[in-house]
Amino acid sequence: MITALNMTVPLKQDPESLEKLQQLKAAFADHIQPAIDAVLRKSKIVHFARVLVIHDKFLQVITEFDGDPMEYTEFFRRELPAVFKPIFELAEGAPDWDDLNNQDTFFEASKGLNVTALGRSTDGRPDQGWLFSYFDKSVREIEEALAGGGSGALITAEPTDASGSTVANAPAGPASPQLADG
């Protein structure tokens, strides 16, 4: 289940905030990017991520990741407060960071800033909109396939067999204790 986050933050337009925005943009490559990179790498669930500023009016954090947005936002609140604090301090209408720096309000704020993509979700989640993914595999699945482990296949038929039968599967050797009653 790959989830898209399209967090779109309207930016304050007063001179002081715009000046801070320029500072953030200038510091991004050397200071912010490495911090985010390290955390994303550690998470092992993020496929892609990027941060955009649109005409100094909006800041976007766009990522595609495995799993649930609730866990994802909490992970980043805990791991990257030094990144999100200055971002939310530039956000129009955002609560003070001291109020926001809490798993509950941070998730709600992030959810409120997420823009649902156009189109229809391909996995039954209406708040997701359309997300195309060629592999539709988790980062771990891709990593294992590239390493030669797992099934080794990145593109497979839908795995779920809803036939109701119980089947044998004995990858560990010939002495499997189980069954084939299907």
Binding site: M1, D123, G124, R125, P159, T160, D161, A162, S163, G164, S165, T166, V167, A168, N169, A170, P171, A172, G173, P174, A175, S176, P177, Q178, L179
Partner: peptide, 21 residues
Amino acid sequence: VPGATRTFAIPSAGGTGRVDA
């Protein structure tokens, strides 16, 4: 739940028993 498997793997020293439904 969309996308959920219905698989239950039961490993043992001799192999893995599995329920697929």
